[in-house]
């Protein structure tokens, strides 16, 4: 370029707070991701009690409600995590837009997975699903036959509607994809990558995703098939 290049002008930009940096935001995303994945696993383990008969879930729900500090503590942590997860995604997405204002006429991904390229889509869709899920099974506004406290019954009645089941199944597939990239990606973001362990971590990510997808999807399918009544 015609003018002499010096980096002096950029020096002011070097004093960046952790949370303002791209890596800082990604770390927030990774840590909140860990929390959310942990919750999703716990949530599934709890839900699998649906296979133990009509009362198990209601009892489980009752037990959770009898421990307000635990319940509300979890809810607050989750709310904050989801909020931060979305905050970092939104701010980083803005950065992405600015970094490539003009795209390619032709673009052919070489190696990246569909899952990894669609995080910015699968994320918002999952957020919408969570809102629906809460209105559906927690508060009941989206559930015509909702009865407070009758968890098992709400579940069975809800899933007997094939459209509802289909939306849950789709959402879970989406979740599986999101986590297939996300679980491995969390480790990479916080700096864990080693030729010895990374292949294992990728398998772990696949296993976690598969477990969550299969476990969660089995419930509406079982309801539709009449296995759970």
């Amino acid at each position: 370029m015609s003018t002499a290049t010096t980096a002096l002008a950029g020096k002011a930009a070097r004093d960046v707070r952790f949370l303002d940096s791209t890596i800082g935001k990604k770390v927030v995303m990774a840590i909140t991701g860990v929390i959310l994945v942990g919750f999703v696993i716990g949530h599934l383990l709890g839900n699998l009690q649906v296979y133990q008969g009509p009362h198990a879930l209601d009892v489980y729900a009752e037990k959770l409600k009898s421990l307000p500090p635990l319940l509300w503590g979890t809810r607050i942590v989750l709310l904050i995590s989801v909020g931060l997860h979305i905050w970092s995604a939104v701010t980083l997405a803005g950065l992405q837009k600015r970094a490539r204002p003009v795209g390619y006429v032709k673009l052919k991904p070489v190696t990246s997975t569909y899952a990894s390229r669609t995080m910015y889509w699968s994320g918002p869709i999952l957020a919408l699903f969570i809102v629906y899920h809460l209105l559906h099974f927690t508060t009941g506004q989206a559930h015509p036959q909702f009865v407070e406290g009758k968890v098992h019954q709400n579940l069975v009645l809800g899933f007997q509607n094939p459209l509802v089941s289909a939306s849950y199944i789709l959402a879970m597939l989406m979740l599986g994809m999101h986590l297939y990239h996300g679980v491995w990606s969390m480790f990479q973001t916080v700096g864990v990558n080693h030729p010895k362990y990374t292949p294992m971590l990728k398998k772990l990510a696949a296993a976690v995703s598969a477990f969550l997808v299969i476990g969660n999807i089995s419930i509406p399918i079982s309801v539709l098939a009449g296995v759970i009544k």
Binding site: S2, A4, T6, A7
Partner: peptide
């Protein structure tokens, strides 16, 4: 580049 950053060298590429 270190000296460019320190302002001791002015660099004129593509010149």
């Amino acid at each position: 580049e270190r000296q460019i950053d320190a302002g001791r060298v002015q660099m004129y590429p593509r010149t």
